[in-house]
Amino acid sequence: MAALNESIARMANAEDQCTGRFWESRFKSQALLDEKALAACMAYVDLNPIRAKMAKTPETSEHTSIKRRIESLKTHTPQPLKLAEFVGNPREPMPQGLPFHLQDYIQLVDITGRAIRENKRGFIDNNQPPILERLNISSHEWRVLTTQFESKFKSLVGCKEKLMLAANALGLQRRPAYANCEATLH
């Protein structure tokens, strides 16, 4: 990081006609050594817009991974490819990805965001309903999506209207998992 920081600082200082370190100690490189550290760091970053009072909830906080993940959930589309996938609890062999469940992470961020910190301007108001309620996801839908995803849905996942649109766009004669989508995802 020091070598990278130095070259960037030299270019930026020449461009801005100034001196000093480029990042001015604002950003640090920290090793995240376990799942707790990873979850804490992710939640810290995803809550920055709320703590800065730039957003009221995770689903409205611009430029955050949690907002992109929530948008994917709401539209029943796969998680964004540029974001690491949630692969569940640690196990052997461990697949590549984040070692916890998406639902746990979203609830963790929601609960953490409600904690009022004296040195920060913003927080999630306790009068806000729980995050699944705000997203209009029933507990039944959430339970099925997060526990039976692979067995219920094979290639297309979404509410029946989105499934029909996708099947038509792909020229599919059959509607894969239509009955499951109709029964589960209203």
Rank of each mutant, 00 (worst) to 15 (best):
A2P: 09
A2W: 11
A2C: 08
L4V: 14
N5E: 11
E6S: 11
I8S: 05
A9D: 03
M11Y: 10
A12R: 09
N13Y: 03
D16F: 09
Q17D: 11
C18V: 11
R21M: 06
R21E: 13
F22I: 06
F27A: 14
K36N: 08
L38F: 14
L38G: 10
A39V: 15
A40S: 15
Y44F: 13
Y44P: 01
Y44H: 12
V45Q: 01
N48S: 15
I50Y: 05
M54W: 05
P58Q: 03
T60I: 01
T60V: 03
S61D: 04
S61V: 04
H63P: 01
H63W: 07
S65E: 03
E71W: 00
E71S: 02
E71Q: 04
E71T: 03
S72C: 14
T75F: 01
P80T: 07
L81Y: 11
L83F: 11
E85I: 12
F86E: 10
V87Q: 11
V87F: 13
R91W: 04
R91A: 13
P93D: 01
P93L: 02
G97T: 06
G97K: 02
H101S: 05
H101R: 10
H101A: 03
H101F: 08
Q103V: 07
D104H: 15
D104P: 06
D110T: 05
D110L: 01
D110S: 06
T112D: 06
R114P: 13
R114M: 15
R117W: 08
R121M: 15
F123Y: 15
N127S: 10
N127F: 00
E133K: 05
R134Y: 00
L135F: 03
S138P: 07
H140A: 11
E141T: 10
R143D: 13
L145P: 00
L145H: 02
T147H: 07
Q148R: 12
Q148E: 13
F149C: 05
F149Y: 14
E150M: 04
E150G: 00
K152M: 06
K152N: 07
F153D: 08
K154A: 13
L156I: 15
K162F: 09
M164Y: 11
A169I: 06
A169Q: 13
A169F: 11
L172Q: 09
L172R: 12
R174G: 03
R174P: 02
A179E: 15
N180D: 09
C181H: 04
C181K: 01
A183N: 15
T184N: 05
H186N: 10
H186L: 08
